[in-house]
């Protein structure tokens, strides 16, 4: 079978095809296959690896356009995923600068980690001398995020980063912010939350690639949602993103129970939404929007009960 590997020698990009016998690699992991190629066919092939047990995060690469942690992926799993494929394309993680072949530059990502103010600032009741206290429920809330191994798989798949990374950060950076903000020992969750908001929190496009690909089953998207809800709760709700989310909520709870798209535009961007007005007019012309809906759509059947339910839930969780 064949492996087409995307290569970069520091000057030029090219593809190189390696032919291997299936029996030589079928019992291996993806990392094992890369090692096999390097050690038997071509020692100029560059990639990074360290622990080979899915805890150091060094060996993330893409197969057929999707990111995998090399040592955590068995070849048999790939054979099953890409049925009957006798050729695989292996590429470096996307959304990183490639240094060589399958090796990418981690420096900018590390600098992004700095932005969310890493490191816990513990509550005053705790001390360096006696440590902290945390109950099981509080521990369970953050322990999943602590599984992050900085492998970069989530970032590689992120549609927002691909479109523009200048106003956004790697999903794992938000996960790191959330693990601190959501820690019961933390003195002020807003230290990390504010930093996340300032660095693109509301720009997530909800593509769920991060959640889907994470080898540690962390949901970057849900961590982003957690940070957003926290930011809203703490009054950090100015801007287009929060207004947009809020309008869905308002329609659901305070208005008809369903979304009103004209109000959505108005609530999100306010009266100054000249650009969007064009879209609304397009829609009305196409007969897709009922201009009367702006005065409030029909309330859904049983909406009062829905409101009661939500209020009960809110009350129960305030206690």
């Amino acid at each position: 079978m064949k492996f087409i590997i995307d290569r970069f020698d520091g000057k030029k990009n090219y593809q190189q095809t390696y032919t291997v016998e299936k029996q030589d690699i079928e019992a291996l992991t993806l990392l094992g296959t890369l090692l096999f190629i390097k050690q038997h066919l071509d020692l100029t092939l560059n990639f990074t690896a360290s622990c080979r047990m899915a805890i150091c995060g060094a060996c993330g690469v893409r197969v057929n356009g999707h990111a995998y942690l090399g040592c955590d992926t068995k070849m048999t799993e790939l054979f099953e995923e890409y049925k009957d494929a006798d050729t695989f394309r292996i590429s470096p993680l996307a959304n990183y600068t490639v240094l060589s072949d399958l090796v990418v530059d981690w420096e900018p990502a590390i600098e992004n980690l700095r932005k969310i103010k890493p490191g816990l600032v513990a509550k005053d009741e705790f001390s360096e001398k006696e440590g902290c206290r945390q109950n099981q429920e509080q521990y369970d809330r953050i322990v999943g995020q602590w599984d992050c191994i900085l492998c970069g798989v989530c970032a590689s798949e992120c549609n927002k980063l691909t479109a523009d990374h200048s106003d956004y950060m790697e999903p794992f950076v938000f996960t790191h912010a959330w693990k601190l903000a959501n820690d019961s020992r933390s003195k002020d969750p807003m230290i990390h939350t504010k930093a996340a908001v300032m660095n693109g929190l509301w720009n997530c496009v909800h593509c769920h690639e991060c959640t889907n690909r994470c080898p540690k089953h962390i949901s970057g998207a849900e961590d982003i949602a957690g940070l957003r809800a926290l930011a809203m709760r703490k009054g950090l709700n100015s801007g287009v993103g929060p207004a947009h989310a809020k309008s869905f909520y308002t329609d659901l709870v305070e208005d008809s129970g369903r979304l009103n798209e004209i109000r959505l535009a108005l609530r999100t961007e306010g009266v100054s939404t000249v650009a969007r007005a064009g879209t609304a007019i397009t829609l009305m012309r196409a007969g897709k929007m009922n201009p009367l809906e702006i005065f409030g759509g029909h309330e859904i059947e049983g909406h009062k009960d829905l409101v009661k339910m939500i209020e009960a839930a809110k009350a129960a969780n305030k206690e």
Binding site: H206, A225, R228, A229, M232, P242, H244, A245, K246, F248, Y249, D251, L252, V253, G257, R258, L259, I300, E301, G302, H303, D305, L306, M309, I310, A313, K314, N317
Partner: peptide, 25 residues
């Protein structure tokens, strides 16, 4: 009859619990 908005992957940013209640309903 009487279905409500699912939250559209947006309302949970305001209140995840309210969204869950609405969808349970």
């Amino acid at each position: 009859k009487g279905w409500s908005c699912c939250g559209a992957s947006q309302a949970q940013d305001v209140d995840p619990l309210a969204t869950l209640v609405a969808n349970a309903r």
